[in-house]
Design a binder for these strands. Structure first.
Length: 634
RNA sequence: GCCGGAGUAGCUCAGCUGGUAGAGCAAGCGCCUUGUAAGCGCUAGGUCGUCGGUUCGAGUCCGACCUCCGGCUCCA
């Protein structure tokens, strides 16, 4: 048989030859370094047979930046971890241990809880395994044989996995440890040159909080110590870009234990916030949205009608008013908008009706889930609800997508789309969900947006398209969302009178594009490292008079720029010019003007954040900066 | 909410096995009058997260609670 190599050449192999045999036939050195093989784009174990006509690529220890090569390495490292833990903790039960984005983990059910200080001895035990050397042996067994094996070993989690496994059941054995595993794995442990256990956490069996909580040990591994060091350095850099750190450093916001999960926006942070709000208002006006304001608190009866009482109550702040009355602070704007829509008779001529509201919402997020600006309890969405007829849904979804593309384009951010379908606790019938999910799918296809399917993750009232962006530590956050809802308008009895003079059901598109200002600003800070574009920068220009004698002239430059509409500051502190430049650089002020004997309004010394210097007149500076202080497209 | 870790000055952090707290930066004051990333000096600032316990004595040991950090779950 023949397989095709990356350089397009063909390699002749005996029928059924494995990836390892292929590697050997290319060269012994390659075989020694081989860790896995990519077959027609999919990662496979080196031990598995190849088939005629396949496109193969041997992955080696030299592919230290290849995700698939690292996956093999780390998955094998996870098995070493399990072997070490089983040796050190008799009676421990093993669950699962995959490779993940930047490392691996293994979940255990320990007889006694362990603490972080227990990681060092475990790491040392893995070190011992590595110095002894381990090799992995792959075998395929029948379901019954696998089951019997894990029953004998008293490994209930493995038994459960065997019972649900589909297709071939394969086992991998290294040293004293045999694991149920699809692979692929290393041939032996030599390529694992750097390994570090990085953390300890609780994790529910199968990710379900109704199940037992296991102990997850995280680690990472690399083909070289240098790669591990680089990884740790990247983590340090990520910490420097962390929005929570930048928030303090740039004096944008802070949190206080008296109101966990709710940001205090400082003047400079509020400037950013307000710029986004201005963008929201201008773009909404341009696209036929109507701004509204609806109440923050509502009687329980409203939440019962909307379904929130049943489906969302544990996330709501409730205010008991009397024996009979409980008020709930709104976690979403939709019910209020439903009341607004229903406040009078609506004609088909009124539709689509697009209500927008940038209101504060409160959600009682789990204490352990709070995270800087990216997960807060006091959240401000760039929210809107589009009330439309069935026939208008497609066009309105198109409008949302076009809007989305515009907004994210402004920031140069490309979010990943995800379609979330009917959840277990849904309202309404499957037929209704078939329809709404189909509309969203069709809209995604019309706009050629590739998306991941997230089955069962929809809102209780409708399916949604979510946009995700990762933060500086690689965590994924949901930003914008577009949801199609037939349930809530029906529960509120919303209808419109059609041209045929009869009542028709109303559909609602819930949409937030940035998602929330809080989360968006958090992510934006991390993506920019705090170097915001001029239109968002809290201070756009700072003027530094060189000496006391220059203060007055500098002040008139400040006034001139302020009159021209810029956010400008005078720094006339009795500090050296060098010190004041340093402070401005640390605060990431986009433009500095140093004003001394050599300058005049006709000849300003302008420094850009980062150090580039130039000379220009005040007028030229105004001309240069004016287009930069509005979001692009204005 | 759950698992693990942490909470010392505005910020970043030091304080060994218990003997009532310290640095740098920031702040205030003074001197310097500054030329593209830190001029010099002085001063002030902390009920060591909160409450309780052990002890002659607790920042340090124990318990509960609060908050934060890393995960899990959940979500914009």
């Amino acid at each position: 048989m023949q397989v095709r190599l990356p350089d397009k050449s063909l390699l002749e192999l005996p029928d059924g030859a494995s990836g390892l045999v292929a590697a050997r036939s290319i060269g012994p050195r390659l075989a020694e370094q081989a860790v896995g093989v990519r077959v027609d784009g999919d990662l496979r174990d080196l031990r598995l047979p190849l088939a005629d006509g396949q496109q193969i690529e041997i992955l080696t220890t030299k592919n230290g930046d290849d995700a698939d090569a690292l996956t093999v390495l780390r998955h094998s490292a996870a098995h070493l971890l399990a072997e070490a833990v089983r040796r050190l903790y008799p009676g421990v039960k093993v669950a699962i241990g995959p490779a993940i984005a930047n490392g691996f983990y293994y979940d255990f059910d320990f007889p006694e809880p362990i603490a972080e200080e227990d990681l060092a001895p475990i790491e040392a035990e893995i070190g011992r395994e590595l110095s002894e050397g381990r090799s992995w042996e792959r075998s395929e067994v029948s379901r019954e044989e696998a089951r019997q094996r894990f029953v004998n070993e008293d490994e209930p989690y493995k038994v459960e996995l065997v019972d649900e496994a589909e297709g071939t059941i394969s086992l991998y054995t290294q040293g004293e440890f045999t694991d149920l595993c699809r692979g692929p794995h290393l041939i032996d442990s030599k390529p694992i040159k750097a390994l570090k256990l990085t953390g300890l956490a609780g994790a529910y069996w199968r990710g379900d909080s109704a199940n037992k909580q296991l102990t997850r040990i995280y680690g990472t591994a690399f083909f070289s110590q240098k790669d591990l060091d680089a990884h740790l350095e990247r983590l340090e850099e990520a910490k420097r870009r962390d929005h929570r750190r930048l928030g303090i450093q740039l004096d944008l916001f802070h949190f206080d234990e008296h109101s966990p999960g709710s940001a205090f926006w400082h003047p400079k942070g509020m400037t950013i916030f307000n710029q986004l709000e201005a963008l929201r208002l201008r773009e909404n006006a341009r696209r036929g949205y109507s701004e509204v304001k609806t109440p923050l608190i509502y009687d329980k009866a409203l939440w019962v009608t909307s379904g929130h009482w049943e489906k969302f109550r544990e996330n709501m702040f409730l205010i008991p008013i009397s024996e009979e009355h409980i008020y709930g602070i709104k976690p979403m704007n939709c019910p209020g908008h439903m009341l607004l829509f229903g406040s009078k008779l609506r004609s088909y001529r009124d539709l689509p009706l697009r209500y927008a509201e940038g209101a504060p919402l409160h959600r009682n997020e789990l204490a352990g889930a709070l995270h800087g600006l990216t997960r807060v309890r006091y959240v401000t969405q760039d929210d809107a609800h589009i009330f439309c007829s069935k026939e208008q849904i497609a066009a309105e979804l198109d409008g949302c997508f076009e809007y989305l593309r515009y907004i994210y384009g402004l920031f140069g951010i490309e979010p990943r789309a995800e379609l979330s379908t009917r959840p277990e606790n849904k309202l309404g019938s499957d037929d209704e969900w078939d329809f709404t999910e189909g509309e969203l799918r069709a809209a995604l296809d019309r706009h050629s947006i590739s998306y991941a399917l997230s089955a069962g993750e929809g809102s209780f009232y409708g399916p949604k398209i979510d946009l995700h962006i990762t933060d500086v530590l690689g965590r994924s956050w949901q930003m914008g969302t577009i949801q199609l809802d037939a349930q809530m308008p029906a529960r509120f009895g919303l209808t419109y009178v059609g041209a045929d003079n009869s009542e028709h059901p109303v559909f609602v598109i819930h949409r937030a594009l940035l998602g929330s200002f809080e989360r968006f600003i958090g992510i934006l800070l991390e993506h920019t490292g705090g170097d915001l574009p001029l239109w968002l920068a809290p201070v756009q220009v700072r003027v530094l008079p060189v000496g006391e004698g220059h203060v007055e002239a500098a002040r008139s430059i400040v006034d001139g720029l302020r009159d021209a509409g810029f956010r400008v500051e005078l720094d006339d502190r009795s500090e050296s010019v060098g010190k004041r430049i340093r402070d401005a650089e640390l605060e990431k002020v986009p433009r500095l003007i140093v004003y001394g004997d050599k300058e005049s309004p006709e000849d300003l010394a302008v420094r850009e954040h980062g150090g580039a210097q130039s000379h220009k007149s005040l007028h030229e500076l105004v001309i240069e900066l004016t287009p930069l202080v509005s979001p692009p497209g204005f």
